[in-house]
Structure formats: structure tokens, C-alpha cells
Amino acid sequence: MDMGTKEICKVSYFDSIKIRAEDINFFYGKKHALKDINLNILKNQVTAIIGPSGCGKTTFIRILNRMHELIPDALLTGRIFLDGQDILSSCIDPTEVRRRVGMVFQKPNPFPKSIFENVSYGLKVNGIRDKNFIEDKVVEALKKSALWDEVKDRLDDNALKLSGGQQQRLCIARCLAVKPEVILFDEPCASLDPISTAKIEELIVELKKNYTIIIVTHNMQQAARVSDYTAFFLLGELIEFGRTGDIFKSPQDKRTEDYITGRFG
């Protein structure tokens, strides 16, 4: 399945590949969760990963920042290149990978600490001590995540007091503060109301100017609204990858068409 490569060659984006996944196979115990995945993620684009639940889409993006290592009894083969460097190699520090590839989770998960501490957390654990620098970065991150106006007067409040949508934007700010190059969104709107969802989507489109974004979603309208490229996963296989417009208008594979038109999943 190297459709991704073909597609990209055709549009000659080859030099702007940010992440390249090669022959990824993943096993949980005996379950073969990902099968021979080959996929290229382009710089400063939004790539959506869609598919029915259990198709391996979340598993896949977790591999991109080595979060899969938290799963016991898992086995991974294949390689992931970030700017040409194999990040799965054992001589690479996973914490460095995770700093470069940030992640926003399904349910907002702010730490039970103040808003300020939440955003500054990543800087502190990465060894930054300079208070003024940290403050600047926190403000910058909150502004970028469109949360600044809502929280500027109460940075010391507990983050759990924020609404669900605000919490999710706080998690985005927390992620932005460490200056990642890639941001992984794992169904970021799954637990949010439509208004908060719209805000997050707007933000994602805004963020792609400076970041490479991958978003897992089972909401096809969302994929269509925010993404430039779409990958369709089914039962651990990458079925189809291409420009979002093409995938939704003229899918090549029968299974993609069935999924998009709502015949299953």
C-alpha cells in the first residue's frame, strides 16, 4: 500500500515531508493492530486520519511520539522518520521526540494545578528555569490558543474550573508552549459541544501556518472542514490516502466509499 507516496510524487511535495512512516506493524499481544502502514505527513498541512473505531488510527498517532511505549506487551516494527531522522531508534531519547511532537488528547486532561502551572509545566520539565522567559512563553501560548482573553485575569485559578472547551484549548496551549513541530490531535472534540468544537477547529486551521498537524477523528464532516489530506484506516490497514477533496469526492477504493457514504462504521 504505497498510494501515499505515489500521490505525493505526483504533486511533487517530496521535499516537504515532515513525517514518514515506513512498514509499520504493531501488535498488542496477539492482536495485529497495524499492518504494513506506509504514510507521509506533509509539513504545514493538516492530515486527518479517519476510520471506524478499532481501526488503529489512535494507535498509529501514538507511535508518532512514542506514546505506544506505555502499553505493556506491545511490539512494533518499522520506522518513523521525523525530518529524516528515525525516531524509533533506541539511541533517541523518547522525551525529546515527545517535545518535538506534541499531543492533544480525546478528553481535556489539564493537570489539577493552576492555569499558569499547566502551561508552564512543559517548559519546566524541559529544564527551563528563567522566570521571565517562562512567563512570556505562557502568555504567547495562551494567545495562540485563543484562550488569553478568557483567562488573563485568573491565571492562578485551578484549571479544573474552566469549561470543557476552555480546558481543551488550555491543553493546546500547554502543548504549544514547548514549541513542538508537529501536533497530534486525538479526537480533540469528542467530548465537546458544537460551539467549543467550532472554536477548536478554527484554531487548528490557524495553527497549521506554523505547525504540522495530524488529527484523528471519526467525524467525517470535521475531517472535511479542517484537513488538507485524509488517510482512511480500516482494521489496521491504510486503505487510502490523498487530498481531502479527492477522498471525499472520488474515493478510489470501494471500502472508503462505503465508509464515507455511511454504509458501515
Binding site: 522525551t95 486532561n109 493537570f111 489539577p112 520539565v125 502543548c175
Partner: peptide
């Protein structure tokens, strides 16, 4: 919640930092 550990690790914290902080 496991998600707090994941959030911390995804920001580049080490395991010990995650436990401590």
C-alpha cells in the same frame, strides 16, 4: 487518571518528572 500521565509524558517529561510533579 492515566490521561494525566500521558499529558505529562507527551510534553517531554520523563517518567520520574511525571511521577514527582
Amino acid at each position: 487518571p492515566q490521561s494525566l500521565r500521558e499529558a505529562s509524558l507527551s510534553l517531554g517529561a520523563t517518567k520520574w518528572q511525571t511521577i514527582k510533579k
